[in-house]
C-alpha cells in the first residue's frame, strides 16, 4: 500500500501545498481573472477620489488631512480598497472553494482522502493569500503611479507586518463563513452581503473614528479594521488606535491566537452535522 497511515508534518505540508498548487494551476487557466483583480481596486478607489476632488476642489487634501491625519488621500483610499480586496478575496476564495466543489462533485472526492479539512483549508488559504497579496500589491503600485503619488513612503516593512498578522485571523474568520456556506449551500448572496458589512466596518474609505460609537465598537472587534489602520498608519502616519505600533500589532496577535481556533471549531462542528444529515456532496 502506498498511502501513509500516520502522516508527519512534512506529509501534511506537502498535501497543503498540493492544494495550493491545484488552485494556482486552475486560476492560470483563466488569466483574465488576475488582470481584473488588479484593475478593480483601482477603479473602486478612483470613485471617492474623484468625488473628493470634485467637491473639495483645491482644498480637498487639507480637508481630508483634518479628518484622517494624512493629506495623501490617494494612497489612503488605495490602501482601503486594496486591503478590502484582500479581505473580500479571502472570503470569496474559501466560500467559493467549498461551494464550487460541492457543485462540481470534487468536494466528495477530496473528503474521501485522509487529508484533514484543516490541511485543505491551509492549502486554500496559502493560495488565496498569495493571489490576493500579488494582486493587491500590484494594484496599489499601479494605482499610485496612475494618480502620481509615491507608493513606497513610510515604513513598508511595518505595513507588511500588519498585513501578515492580519491575514491569519482573517482566514480564521473565513472558516466561520465557510461553515455557513457548507450548511446553507449558498455563497453568492452571502458574499454580497458580507462585502458591504466588511467594507463598512473596516473603514474602507474613512477612519472608523467617524462611525457611531456602538458601530465603532463592533468594527474594532473585526481584525481587518486593525489591519487597514495599521497599514495606513505605517505608510501614511494616520495614527495607531493605541498610539504605538506594537500595541496595535499585539491586538492582531491576540486575534491571531483565537480566530483560527474558533473558526476551525465551528467548521468542524458544521462539517460533522452535514455528514450526519445530507452528506458532504449534496448541493
Amino acid at each position: 500500500m502506498a498511502a501513509v497511515l500516520r502522516p508527519s508534518l512534512a506529509h501534511k505540508l506537502s498535501a497543503a501545498l498540493a492544494e495550493t498548487r491545484l488552485r494556482l494551476l486552475n486560476i492560470s487557466r483563466y488569466p483574465g481573472q488576475l488582470a481584473m483583480e488588479i484593475i478593480i481596486p483601482i477603479v473602486f478607489a478612483s470613485m471617492p477620489m474623484l468625488l473628493g476632488r470634485a467637491s473639495g476642489g483645491g482644498a480637498a487634501a487639507e480637508n481630508f488631512a483634518a479628518n484622517t491625519g494624512t493629506a495623501n488621500y490617494v494612497a489612503y483610499l488605495l490602501i482601503g480598497s486594496n486591503v478590502f480586496t484582500l479581505v473580500s478575496n479571502a472570503f470569496w476564495h474559501v466560500a467559493y472553494w467549498l461551494r464550487f466543489e460541492q457543485e462540481t462533485g470534487t468536494l466528495e472526492s477530496v473528503y474521501l482522502t485522509p487529508t484533514s479539512s484543516l490541511t485543505l483549508v491551509t492549502g486554500v488559504a496559502l493560495y488565496s493569500a498569495a493571489r490576493g497579496l500579488v494582486a493587491a500589491g500590484l494594484a496599489y503600485i499601479v494605482g499610485c503611479l496612475i494618480f502620481q503619488v509615491n507608493p513606497l513612503q513610510g515604513d513598508v516593512l511595518l505595513a507588511l507586518a500588519f498585513i501578515g498578522a492580519g491575514l491569519v485571523p482573517l482566514y480564521g474568520l473565513t472558516l466561520l463563513f465557510g461553515a455557513l456556506v457548507l450548511k446553507v449551500k449558498e455563497s453568492n448572496a452571502l458574499i454580497g452581503l458580507m462585502q458591504w458589512v466588511v467594507s463598512f466596518l473596516m473603514g474602507i474609505f474613512f477612519p472608523v473614528a467617524v462611525l457611531p460609537p456602538l458601530v465603532r465598537l463592533v468594527a474594532l472587534l473585526f481584525p481587518p479594521t486593525w489591519m487597514t489602520n495599521g497599514v495606513r498608519s505605517a505608510l501614511l502616519g494616520v495614527g495607531f488606535f493605541f498610539g504605538e505600533w506594537y500595541l496595535d500589532l499585539a491586538v492582531l496577535w491576540v486575534f491571531m491566537l483565537f480566530a483560527p481556533l474558533f473558526g476551525f471549531w465551528v467548521f468542524n462542528r458544521v462539517e460533522r452535522n452535514v455528514k450526519r444529515n445530507e452528506g458532504m456532496g449534496q448541493f
Binding site: 492544494e19 491545484l22 494551476l25 470534487t106 482522502t113
Partner: peptide, 19 residues
C-alpha cells in the same frame, strides 16, 4: 478537476493520500 490534466489530477489526489 476538469481544468487539470489527467496526470495532474492523479498527482494531486496522490498528495491528498500523503504520498
Amino acid at each position: 478537476y476538469w481544468k487539470l490534466s489527467g496526470r495532474e489530477n492523479l498527482e494531486f489526489f496522490g498528495a491528498l493520500y500523503h504520498l
